[in-house]
Design a protein around this nucleic acid. Sequence first.
DNA 1: TTCCGTGCAAATCTTTTGCACGGTC
DNA 2: GACCGTGCAAAAGATTTGCACGGAA
Lengths: 175, 175
Amino acid sequence: MTAPPKASGHASPSEAGAQPWSERARTELRRAGYRRGGAREQLINLLARERCALTVQEMDGRLQEAYRQGASPRPVGIASVYRGIELLVELGLVARVDVGDGIARYERASVEHGGENHDHHHHHFICDRCGLIVPFDDQPLERAIVALEDRVGFAVSGHEVLLHGSCSDCRDTRR
Amino acid sequence: MTAPPKASGHASPSEAGAQPWSERARTELRRAGYRRGGAREQLINLLARERCALTVQEMDGRLQEAYRQGASPRPVGIASVYRGIELLVELGLVARVDVGDGIARYERASVEHGGENHDHHHHHFICDRCGLIVPFDDQPLERAIVALEDRVGFAVSGHEVLLHGSCSDCRDTRR
DNA sequence: TTCCGTGCAAATCTTTTGCACGGTC
DNA sequence: GACCGTGCAAAAGATTTGCACGGAA
């Protein structure tokens, strides 16, 4: 857990309009009292570009490559990736997804507050044989979960559904 | 992935009757060609006793304590816990649950084949503030997932639902 | 000018692997 | 008697932390 520097403004999430995720992320960071920095900025841009979950290794790899191609003045350290991700998760801007292989993955969180602007809310199917991860969404499932959230005695802030099994390729190739 | 020693019998799951989980586990292990061993046996008994997810550290701690109290001739090494768990997961007898703190948890898997004997199938609510894990089950949710499983183009062998949020204690104690 | 954000390297923690011995089949 | 299962210790990864410097406010 990180201690916010000084937290100048109010802490409630902004109106969460139809603005792109990267804008929302920058706004929330500033609102929470964080300064702007090069590594964090590159991380946001990277996550904004991706739809589905990435590992820290993958993020680091892409940032290294961007550096090699002259896109940034200095290399982004992997520690900064971890620190940036941790912060974004704390602020609810990024969701962590554990598919069961012991490596954490992260993707931008969709806006869930108003119910509108589900800017790509989805869940994951995992092939336990080859590791393939396929995103999917399903409205009936979402409805069932929302209904359930009201019934349980907790303040639910997010949910995650994982389907494990075999993808079509692996099913055919019966080992 | 572990290579089965010799795999004497057929590999399909047994009829999965109303027998206790520990019995089923021992049967499946034998059926898959594995021998019986002290550490594995103690691990099965431990998991059979627990309803919800345990970390490897927790399992190891309880086995150490059992040893100190003379319940076993020699201490169970943590490597054997990892190896035993891996095997049980492979055979579908144990399910891995990742709640998002980077530490793997394991609990016995319920029988899902016939639909009967759901011997404690459940999902988890996680308090992201204090780490509390609360199991819950919900029939409408299960129905939605089963319906979805038929619709996706994969062979789904299991599913997991995680609700993140704040438990009543943490919600009251607004930090 | 102050204090935060960052890169680098070391430290920590979880999980895996190598090896030799004792037990199961 | 052959080969598997296990404990111990070392190794391998993933993630976190300490520290000094450059940049944002």
